[in-house]
C-alpha cells in the first residue's frame, strides 16, 4: 500500500533522512521506533508531502506521491495526525472535526456518520462540542487530533507520537482506540513512538530509526527480544 524506496530528505541543507526504504501492506499495523531526533517526524512529514525528498520515491497504492501537494495526498486517503497535533486552537471541537472532513465536504450523511463514530470513540469530545480546541488538556487535544484525522475516512493513518507527554491512563486509552481503528475500521496504521513498550504491544511489526537511517526491522516479538531495542527503548 505504502512504499518508500531509498528516500533522502534534507531540511535547510541538512541531511535528516538517509536512504530509508520500507513497505507497508493494506490493513497492517506497523510501528516506527526511534529516540529523540531520530527523524520519525521528518520521515512522516516526507510521506505526507509537507517535505519533499531530494532523492528516492514514495508511492501510495502504486502511485508516486512524492511530488504531489499535501492536500492531494490527503484526498488519496493517506492522512497524517501530526506531532504537536496542529489543531485550530480558536475553533470549536465541532469545527475542528468538520475541517477534518474537508476532503469529503458536501457529503452530509457521510460526515454525520463519521462524526458519530468519532464521538463514540471519544465520548468526552461530544460533551465539549463547543469548547475551543486551544483550551483543551494535552490528552483531550490528542483525542481531538486523532478524531479529526479520522473524519475523512483515511485508508491509511500516520500517527506521530500520540502518547508523548500523556498520563499512563490516557496512553492506554489512546492505544486501545488506535488498535480499534486498525482492526474494526480496517485502516492501515503506521505509528511512530518513543514509547516502544506501548507500540510493540499493539502493532504487528516495526522499523527502528536511528540518526535518519533505518537500522532494524522485524515483527514485534523479534524486536522486543532484540538486545539493542531493549537497551535503547524499553529500558530493561
Amino acid at each position: 500500500m505504502l512504499k518508500l524506496n531509498q528516500v533522502h530528505t534534507a531540511i535547510g541543507g541538512l541531511q535528516i533522512i538517509q536512504n530509508v526504504s520500507l513497505e507497508i501492506g493494506k490493513g497492517e499495523f506497523v510501528a516506527l521506533l526511534g529516540s529523540n531526533g531520530a527523524g520519525k517526524t521528518t520521515l512522516f512529514r516526507t510521506i505526507a508531502g509537507v517535505l519533499k525528498p531530494h532523492a528516492g520515491s514514495v508511492t501510495f497504492e502504486g502511485v508516486p506521491i512524492d511530488r504531489l501537494p499535501v492536500h492531494k495526498i490527503v484526498e488519496r486517503g493517506l492522512v497524517l495526525c501530526p506531532q504537536g497535533r496542529q489543531l485550530f486552537p480558536e475553533l470549536s471541537v465541532q469545527k475542528n472535526l468538520l475541517l477534518g472532513a474537508y476532503p469529503i465536504r458536501g457529503e452530509k450523511k457521510r460526515i454525520q456518520k463519521n462524526l458519530d463514530r468519532v464521538y463514540a470513540l471519544f465520548p468526552i469530545l461530544r460533551e465539549r462540542i463547543n469548547q475551543k480546541a486551544g483550551t483543551f488538556s494535552g490528552g483531550e487535544q490528542q483525542m481531538l487530533a486523532i478524531g479529526r484525522a479520522l473524519m475523512s475516512e483515511p485508508k491509511m493513518l500516520l500517527l506521530d507520537e500520540p502518547s508523548v507527554g500523556l498520563a499512563p491512563l490516557i496512553v492506554k486509552l489512546i492505544a486501545d482506540v488506535i488498535s480499534n481503528i486498525n482492526q474494526e475500521m480496517d485502516t492501515t496504521v503506521f505509528l511512530s513512538e518513543q514509547n516502544a513498550n506501548m507500540a510493540l504491544n499493539i502493532t504487528q511489526r516495526g522499523y527502528v530509526l536511528e540518526s535518519g537511517r533505518c537500522v532494524l526491522d522485524g515483527d514485534c516479538q523479534h524486536l522486543k527480544t532484540d538486545e539493542k531495542v531493549r537497551k535503547a527503548y524499553i529500558g530493561a
Binding site: 509537507v50 492536500h71 490527503v74 492522512v79 496542529q86 489543531l87 485550530f88 486552537p89 475553533l91 475541517l99
Partner: peptide, 24 residues
Amino acid sequence: TILGTTIEAVAQNREGAMLNGINV
C-alpha cells in the same frame, strides 16, 4: 460555510490546514 471556515483554519495553523486536505 466550510470555505469561510478554511480561512480561519489556515490563519490559525497553516500546516494543520494542509494536513486536513485544504488547498492553502
